[in-house]
């Protein structure tokens, strides 16, 4: 499917393409807010907006893992992100047990878990050339299986460290603390992807595997590293989720998997790989969260929420697709 004939793109045209989608998403978010503000009381209050952004931050951070893998190309997709977070949260909750001292140990465990899971995904997909969709799905099954087995017959004990709670759940004034994390992560991501050779290599591999290989880049290694980074980040996300929710439970992360992909798509990143603008992805996450809030606020319940979610996603995909068609 990703054999769409490439055509020469001029730099100015690419910049225009790059920012056009971000502007579109931004306008859509504004429209949603305007619509919400005119029909619902309190929709545009500062608290409500920051609450939306706070909830969207978690999706956005998961979407970063997703974007890195997708940008590496080769139909890369990481369906195990949420499950990685769950297993980290479940395993570290009892270690932290509401105290700050074991936080370092918890972080180390999270890093180790993340590297292991990410490497497993990376080796299986890039070195054994197995389809990422199936591999990450099976890994997700295995992780959920471990969690189920660990949870079976006993309650998950333990609470997150107060530091984690402060970072993930608390507000500074009206400003959610998780937003500082998101801003920090965004800056680092933008610098690495746009200003260092690492970003160039990742996008190069995603855009054209063959060219990258002929230029002396170890394509397999790059994709393997992309999966490992995704594993580590999503494992750390497990700690933040635990901090936000206060307790660990066995389905805590799995709800973020599909929204993370949706945010990447709405953010205007091609699933074919080779590109990725994290700002767009963040806007995509905010758009999804605002839409969810609106649909819930209208009392449409689950049915309306999912139907609206699906229709909007389908419409946006169609809109994006229409300017990608070459025939």
């Amino acid at each position: 499917m990703n054999t769409v004939m490439s055509r020469p793109k001029f730099l100015s045209f690419r910049i225009y393409e790059k920012y056009k989608k971000i502007v579109v998403v931004f306008i859509l978010i504004v429209l949603l807010f305007v619509f919400g503000a005119t029909t619902l009381p309190n929709f545009l209050s500062v608290e409500q907006v920051f609450m939306t952004i706070k909830l969207a931050s978690f999706t956005a951070l998961f979407a970063l893992c997703q974007m890195i893998v997708i940008a590496g190309g080769g139909s890369g997709l990481d369906l195990s992100v949420g499950y990685t977070a769950t297993i980290t949260a479940v395993l570290t909750a009892s270690i932290m047990d509401g105290k700050n001292e074991p936080l370092l140990l918890a972080v180390l465990i999270a890093l180790a878990l993340g590297v292991m899971i990410g490497l497993a995904n990376g080796v299986l997909t890039s070195y054994l050339k197995l389809p990422p969709l199936v591999v990450t799905l099976a890994i997700a099954d295995i992780l959920q299986g471990i969690v189920n087995a660990y949870v079976a017959g006993k309650a998950i004990t333990g609470r997150p460290s107060p530091i984690l709670v402060t970072i993930a759940a608390k507000f500074t004034g009206k400003f959610p603390n998780i937003l500082f994390v998101l801003i920090l992560v965004t800056s680092i991501t933008m610098i690495i992807l746009n200003k260092t050779k690492w970003g160039q290599i990742l996008f190069g591999v995603g855009a054209n595997e063959r060219t990258a290989y002929l230029s002396g880049i170890n394509v397999k290694k790059v994709r393997c590293i992309a999966f490992t980074v995704s594993g580590v980040l999503s494992s750390l996300m497990g700690l933040l989720l635990l901090g936000n929710m206060g307790i660990a439970f066995k389905d805590m992360g799995s709800n973020y998997v599909l929204p993370s992909i949706a945010a990447v798509v709405i953010g205007g990143v091609s699933l074919a790989g080779g590109e990725g603008n994290y700002l767009g992805v963040i806007l995509g996450a905010i758009f999804l969260q605002t839409l969810t809030n609106l649909l819930i606020a209208f009392g449409l319940g689950d049915a309306g929420k999912w139907l609206g979610f699906g229709i909007i996603l389908f419409a946006m995909l169609s809109a994006y697709a229409s300017n990608r068609r070459s025939r």
Binding site: M1, N2, V4, L77, L133, L258, I261, A262, V265, L271, A272, W306, L307, F309, G310, L313, F314, L317, S318, Y320, A321, S322, R324, R325
Partner: peptide, 14 residues
């Protein structure tokens, strides 16, 4: 529309 199948059927599933 030639949207990647994974993502379009993900949308329709909702």
């Amino acid at each position: 529309l030639r949207i990647p199948p994974v993502i379009v059927t993900f949308a329709t599933s909702y």
